[in-house]
């Protein structure tokens, strides 16, 4: 089942690239870079999450940072 999800993620990424890539002008180097970085980053994160769904997320990070203040509101 997991490989199917990975396949799905990759297919989505390919579809996005196919749709957007021809629209970016050849001179827009920065744009191309940003697009590649974001897409690749998302795909990697998604695939990692497929295999490690319990990985602590950004919410836990925020929760950990603001914990001392949050205690004030906890009852």
């Amino acid at each position: 089942m997991k490989w199917l999800m990975v396949l799905g993620i990759v297919v989505v990424a390919i579809l996005m690239t196919l749709y957007e890539w021809p629209k970016i002008n050849k001179e827009q180097k920065r744009e191309k870079k940003a697009f590649v970085v974001l897409t690749a980053g998302s795909v990697i994160l998604a695939v990692v999450l497929v295999y490690f769904p319990a990985m602590p997320g950004p919410t836990q990070l925020v929760d950990a940072i603001f914990k001392p203040l949050g205690k004030l509101l906890e009852q």
Binding site: V12, A13, M16, Y19, E20, K23, I24, Q28, R30, E31, A34, F35, L38, T39, G41, S42, L45, A46, L49, A54, M55, G57, P58, T59
Partner: peptide, 27 residues
Amino acid sequence: WFKLSDYRQLVFPLGFLLIIMAIWSAP
């Protein structure tokens, strides 16, 4: 932030990231 001249090509990759974050951000 990246000092790009256009924003449209970022919409879908960031949207994809958004879905992942939504699933990841809370159990």
